[in-house]
């Protein structure tokens, strides 16, 4: 039973990991931009959440709404003012730009907030639990998983059904041809980056509610995001979700066996999957991001 409970908790954690990967994977799927600063944006979002949650009405968990909105605005500015300037066949300038941004952001946060470990306090909810099939599960992790699933499904639905979603999918397929049809792909990219950062920001705040973070946590977050995206198969939607769950379950099982292992076994599983199936798990499910 204890193992089943560990797996269940791994799935709950994995949903959050999937959400961390979603922003990175979405930006890559639409723009072929690898945002190396994604991890540090996630941490920055956690800091914004830390300062906003005392003023959030009804329940502290609702702080994800204003933080997502702010992150959306920052994403649009980031794309318009910086990343759009270095777009081209060569991907190195984008990587260098976001890498530099990551360093600035991280050290800026250390200077501003200090290097102490922080956490967003959701009050009693942290200690609530319930019995399910003989397992004891926490309410907060379940809420977090539900939020992750809702965001995955909502993004998917919006991409498939809305006018803007259609234009985003078309731009992801061919950003040159959309211009012949009157679409300014730079604007589409700005919206996509806004969404990517908003999704990451939600992940960052939820992570800060479940655990703690410091200004240096960004590198770990980025690594998780990368692994989720690669395990899922670049640009695969539900593949990413499964990738997150694989990582979450592996990590908690490993911690049960070897309490000092940390994230190591997750990285090993990532490595094994990469060797066995370089296309990621999605080649097994063949469900591409923007494919119906």
């Amino acid at each position: 039973m204890i193992w089943l409970e560990t797996i269940a908790n791994g799935i709950l954690l994995g949903g959050l990991y999937a959400l961390i990967g979603l922003g990175l994977g979405f930006a890559f799927g639409v723009m072929r931009v690898v945002n190396v600063a994604q991890g540090d944006f996630i941490v920055a979002a956690a800091f914004i959440g830390l300062y906003l949650y005392p003023w959030t009405p009804v329940h502290p968990i609702l702080v994800i709404l204003p933080v997502a909105l702010i992150a959306f605005g920052i994403g649009i500015l980031l794309q318009r003012l910086l990343i759009n300037r270095v777009l081209g066949h060569d991907q190195i300038p984008q990587i260098l730009l976001t890498f530099g941004l990551a360093i600035v952001l991280r050290n800026g946060m250390v200077a501003w907030f200090g290097a102490n470990s922080q956490s967003i306090n959701v009050g009693n909810m942290r200690f609530w639990g319930f019995n399910f099939l003989g397992m004891r599960l926490g309410v907060l992790p379940v809420v977090v998983l539900v939020i992750a699933i809702v965001l995955f499904a909502a993004l998917r639905f919006w991409l498939n059904r809305s006018r803007m979603g259609r234009i985003i999918r078309a731009t992801a397929d061919d950003h040159q041809v959309v211009q012949l049809l009157g679409v300014n792909y730079r604007n589409v990219y700005a919206v996509a980056m806004g969404l990517a950062l908003a999704l990451s920001a939600v992940a960052g705040v939820l992570l800060a509610m479940r655990g703690s973070f410091t200004p240096y946590s960004g590198a770990d977050r980025l690594l998780i995001a990368f692994e989720v995206v690669v395990i899922g198969g670049l640009g695969s939607f539900w593949g990413m979700f499964i990738g997150g769950i694989v990582l979450g379950v592996t990590q908690l099982l490993a911690l049960k066996i070897d309490p000092s292992a940390g994230l190591m076994y997750g990285h090993i599983v990532f490595f094994i999957i990469l060797i066995l199936s370089p296309q990621g798990l999605s080649s097994l499910f063949s469900m591409k991001v923007f494919r119906k």
């Binding site: 259609r166 234009i167 999918r169 078309a170 397929d173 041809v177 679409v183 591409k288 119906k292």
Partner: peptide, 17 residues
């Protein structure tokens, strides 16, 4: 150079842009 992942109708409707 169609948008390969889109349906026929979605391809056409991008032209409304």
């Amino acid at each position: 150079r169609l948008f390969g992942s889109l349906s026929v109708e979605d391809n056409l409707r991008v032209g409304e842009s």
